[in-house]
């Protein structure tokens, strides 16, 4: 009896830092944001409980359209990242050996040694009208005057895909690495074409990695701020910019809090839907990630 209690206490003490960490840094702020999101301004320094901030999101087309646009572009970014990352991950997991593999992974990691802001500024230097790409296009004669490649949705997608690539490659390479080479050979041996083997063996095997990578990339993208702000055009408002605007330029914290909660809920709902559609469970996916 005593020993069981003692071991329980030990377990609790061991877990205490983690619980405190989670509680103080994740749960508590969210609870506060949640409470804040239900307060409505009545008069200066007077607030009342209400659902107005949430209603505002659904009744003002500007806000839900911005969210829909953000979600749609994030899904697009996730899909593009997946398509780009898959061959790279396949190469890292199945072809590259030893040093080459380490170097390739390092190359994927390299851009993350500088901050997201610097990376984005790098893209701006490349894409701006007086930038490297524009200059190169003119030099080879593909354009006869400076080309503006910045400040449009394409630039935003480019920047976001670039930022998400690593987070897709790692879980994918992980998943693909565990695929026994003989299983792939058996796929060919029994008459499967490359496409059949990819579709029926490699992709189903990598599914947990695909889902894990997609969730990470989607969440990172939907919650990104700097990339869409800096690369995006005068037309592209990201939902996080709305939250920023509410908190910082409009001083409307309750509205910003409501938007924050809605971002959390709606993006979680999209992830849940994605899991349902692909028939994956969160548990197996987390194992992979």
């Amino acid at each position: 009896m005593m020993t069981r209690q003692a071991s329980r206490l030990t377990l609790f003490l061991l877990l205490a830092p983690a619980i405190l960490w989670l509680g103080l840094l994740i749960v508590l702020p969210h609870v506060e944001i949640l409470v804040l999101s239900f307060s409505e301004r009545v008069a200066p320094r007077v607030y009342a409980f209400g659902l107005g901030n949430y209603l505002e999101f659904f009744t003002e087309p500007l806000y839900w359209r911005t969210f829909a646009r953000t979600a749609f572009m994030s899904i697009l970014v996730t899909a593009l990242t997946l398509v780009l990352a898959f061959p790279i991950a396949l190469y890292i997991a199945r072809v590259a050996q030893g040093r080459v593999k380490a170097i390739l992974l390092l190359l994927c990691l390299l851009p993350f040694w500088v901050s997201e802001l610097v990376r984005t500024l790098g893209w701006m230097m490349l894409l701006r009208e007086t930038g490297v790409v524009s200059y190169a296009l003119r030099a080879v004669g593909l354009a006869d005057q400076p080309v503006e490649l910045l400040y449009n949705d394409g630039a935003v997608i480019l920047g976001l895909v670039y930022g998400g690539l690593l987070f897709m490659i790692v879980p994918l390479a992980n998943a693909l690495e565990s695929l026994e080479p003989a299983v792939v050979e058996a796929g060919f041996d029994l008459g499967g074409s490359r496409w059949t083997v990819l579709r029926r063996i490699v992709i189903p095997h990598a599914m947990p990695g695909i889902v894990a990578g997609s969730i990470i990339v989607f969440m990172l993208t939907v919650g990104n701020f700097a990339t869409p702000v800096l690369l995006g055009g005068k037309n592209g408002l990201w939902f996080t910019e709305q939250i920023y605007a509410q908190f910082i330029t409009r001083f409307n914290w309750p509205q910003g809090a409501a938007f924050g909660m809605l971002l959390l809920l709606l993006s979680s709902a999209i992830v849940w839907l994605g899991l349902r559609l692909t028939g994956q469970s969160l548990g197996s996916t987390l194992k992979q990630a």
Binding site: E180, A182, E185, A186, L190, R200
Partner: peptide, 28 residues
């Protein structure tokens, strides 16, 4: 390999874990 009238039983068997028994056999 996929065009040869030869099929192989692998040392590890290399069954397709993502498929049922019936799908494994029907695959070819």
């Amino acid at each position: 390999a996929n065009r040869r009238p030869v099929n192989m039983v692998f040392q590890s068997l290399a069954l397709f874990p993502m498929m049922s028994v019936g799908e494994n056999v029907a695959y070819g």
